[in-house]
Design a binder for these strands. Structure first.
Length: 256
DNA sequence: ATGGCGGCTGAGAGCCGA
């Protein structure tokens, strides 16, 4: 079972790259964030023509998530965190076989101390509560997506420069740690990885070429499932294409 | 390192992302 996450920063723009990536990598599940497209305009036919199923929860301009899969999702999809009345489309959960897949686009937070920062932290609290409940229901669970949090110093190209900056503040990192404490494992760190491995690079300042990035996209697996994780990686190749997303796909594989 | 890029809207320049 190969599960991946990719913030595409507009599916309208990136659809050809997504189709190419599906053909090349053959994932069983691909979670997309920042599709930025209303459901009525979602390119369902193009994805189905590639041999995949897809479910989506979108809106215009901002946010939007989708789950592309080989096999159809079982049962109804979840599009809202329980207890959070939020028009922003940032969550999509569905079960594939025994595995519950929860695709999230965590709020950016903009700046420590801002209203958006408070929203981010409360959003992460709601996420944690839901994960705790869902783990009782489906012990095999993958929580993946754009977390907008670099959890450790080794996930930041210049930790000193990023100290107290959004994506790397202590409260954000503590919220990420609480997700792990709830029973999740950062699959990327189960394996030896190259130093300075990142999943996002700013479009500006030649950040990708200089590898000045952050690792903010993650595939977290429940402890039951993490035991069956056989690989975890970041695919930097799409980031080097013409007109790329600023994020790279992150991948984890599990034995069934 | 101020913003530097890119996508969006709406038809300007500004918002937002990270």
């Amino acid at each position: 079972m190969k599960i991946a996450s990719w913030n595409v920063n507009s599916l309208r723009v990136r659809l050809p790259q997504v189709l190419d990536w599906l053909a090349a990598e053959q994932p069983d599940v691909l979670a997309l964030q920042e599709t930025k497209i209303p459901d009525m305009q979602f390119p369902q036919a193009e994805i189905e023509a590639a041999g995949y199923r897809v479910i989506f929860s979108g809106q215009n301009t901002y946010n939007g998530v989708a789950l592309i899969s080989r096999e159809p999702a079982a049962g109804a999809a979840l599009t809202d965190l329980p207890g959070l009345d939020d028009p922003q489309r940032r969550v999509l959960g569905a079960r594939y076989g025994a595995i519950y897949v929860l695709n999230v686009y965590v709020p950016n937070g903009q700046e420590a101390g801002s209203d958006k920062y408070a929203y981010k932290l409360s959003w992460l609290n709601r996420l944690q509560s839901f994960v705790e409940v869902q783990l009782q229901e489906t012990p095999e669970l993958v929580l993946l997506g754009d977390f907008n949090i670099a959890p450790q110093e080794c996930d930041v190209h210049d930790p000193a420069a990023w100290e107290n900056s959004i994506l790397f503040t202590q409260p954000e990192r503590a919220a990420f740690q609480r997700l792990l404490d709830a029973g999740l494992v950062d699959t990327f760190r189960l394996f030896e990885q190259a130093e300075k491995s990142y999943s996002w690079w700013d479009y500006r300042m030649l950040a990708f070429r200089r590898n000045r990035g952050l690792r903010i996209d993650h595939v977290l697996a429940s402890q039951a499932l993490a035991k069956r994780c056989t690989s975890a990686s970041i695919d930097k190749t799409p980031r080097a294409l013409e007109r790329p997303s600023d994020h790279a796909p992150v991948i984890a594989e599990f034995t069934l």
